[in-house]
Amino acid sequence: MTPRKISIVTETYVPDVNGVAISLRHLIDALVRQGVAIQLIRTRPRSAWTPVVEEIGCPGITIPMYPELQMGLPSRRRIEAAWDSFKPDLVYLATEGLLGNSGLKVAMRRKIPVLSAFHTNFHRYSSYYGLGWIKTLTLSWLRRFHNRTGGTLVPSDEIADLLQQEAFERVQVLPHGVDCDLFSPQKRSETLRESWGVTPDQQVLLYVGRIAAEKNIPLAIAAYEKARAANSELKFVLVGDGPLRDSLEKEHPEIEFAGVQTGETLSQYFASADAFVFPSVTETFGLVTLEAMASALPVVAFDMAAAHKFVESGSEGVVAEVDNDDAFIEALESLLSSDISQLGRQARIKAESLSWDAVATQFISIIEDELERRGQASSSTLRTLV
């Protein structure tokens, strides 16, 4: 049986450290395990990286305000050459930049079925950088881009509803999964906790993500300070980097700023904390929420994205009304007055049902439906494999 051949076009991928890159890596790994042949067309990595599937590197430029990310440049000829050789059954556009747009144009010209992904809450991001005036223009571009594909995949019901209200067509939900072998309470490290200056009995709050305005970090710090007034031994560890790190680190010497962590080291940071604090209101999903839950950390977050779908107050953590800062602060106070260990165990149980293999199976089903819609289904279907 000939496996399906999927070409994925993206402007971010590992070794980049962000939710889109990491979730795409997990999805690709799961698809390969299920017999899908993958070709990856991406911006060239700027640090050492050993590919695990066929990769075609394309030029990119640094994105303002996001120096760790690149915007892919138009690469029609590279894409045409790649597809001449690979002959994909379907193209998956994981990002909507210039590189993705090149992929869309070539696929349309060659009549190759296309699916796209929507990962960024542009309407919320713009307000944090004083760019609210571009919201309408950005949405217009995104709507035109995605509506020319066979379907747009989003990670949550909330984003699906938002896009449908903005006249995006053929929107489907494909949630993220989590690696429960990598992220596990078994990775807890007392040596790491000692480096934070805490004893085995002290409670540690953890944030993982970009240290930037759109992540709402000052609210997390305000919630921590309120909780610390009642428990002076409470510790807060922030993992990540970004434009606010230097100033916040100077203002708050009592907080541990750990920088960017990945892989096994990141899993130790998760497992060595006691609760996860995530104040962002710009997420389309928030993969770190599931990574925290897999690590047996109860979650404090706004009632949106992954937290809305997977965290029930009093069960896997505490969720707060969206955009209500006082409610978020109260949510942390409520969590800390609860049995954190029990909530963490329940969070782990919930995470164990959210595997990337299950996500890949759903993705394959969406692919087959699109190929059938386009009249290109064949006897080489993968449905018998999953």
Rank of each mutant, 00 (worst) to 15 (best):
D181E: 15
I159C: 08
S379T: 14
R78M: 13
I6C: 04
R374H: 04
S365K: 11
V14R: 12
E321F: 03
S379P: 07
I28M: 08
S355Y: 08
T282R: 04
R143M: 06
S338Q: 13
E370A: 01
I340Y: 01
L104Y: 03
S232K: 12
K250M: 15
S23I: 02
L73K: 02
K235I: 02
F270E: 03
Q34L: 09
Q203G: 12
L192G: 07
V114N: 05
I22V: 14
N231Q: 13
A296E: 11
S267T: 03
V319Y: 00
Q165W: 07
P3Y: 02
C58M: 08
E264W: 09
V204D: 02
F302V: 01
D179V: 00
Q376E: 13
V106N: 05
L385G: 04
V9S: 03
R228A: 08
A275C: 04
D369I: 00
V178D: 03
L73W: 00
Q376S: 11
S315E: 15
L104A: 06
A222V: 07
R228S: 06
R25N: 11
A107G: 00
S272P: 05
F86L: 10
G132V: 07
S267Q: 04
V208D: 00
L205S: 05
T50Q: 15
W356A: 00
W141E: 10
S189E: 09
G375F: 06
P45L: 07
V318T: 10
H26I: 00
P45G: 09
G132Q: 12
S315I: 15
Y66D: 11
A227C: 13
R383F: 10
N231S: 13
A82G: 05
L335A: 09
L31Y: 01
G317C: 07
R33Y: 02
V260L: 06
A347K: 06
P45V: 08
S47G: 07
A220W: 00
T361F: 07
E330I: 12
R46N: 14
T199P: 03
L73S: 06
A377C: 05
V319A: 01
S313M: 05
R144F: 12
I41F: 05
N231D: 14
E96S: 08
V173K: 04
I349A: 15
N147R: 01
N216E: 09
P253C: 11
D326V: 14
F236S: 03
R245D: 10
I217T: 03
Y129T: 10
G72H: 08
V52H: 13
I329D: 01
E96N: 10
T136F: 09
R42Y: 06
E68Q: 15
L343C: 06
E96A: 09
E190L: 15
S353Q: 15
K309D: 08
Q342C: 12
S353C: 13
L290D: 02
R33C: 03
Q172I: 00
T361Y: 04
S380T: 14
D181W: 10
P279Y: 02
L206H: 00
G209M: 06
D84V: 12
P175F: 02
D89K: 04
A160D: 04
P200R: 08
L382T: 03
P3Q: 09
I221M: 08
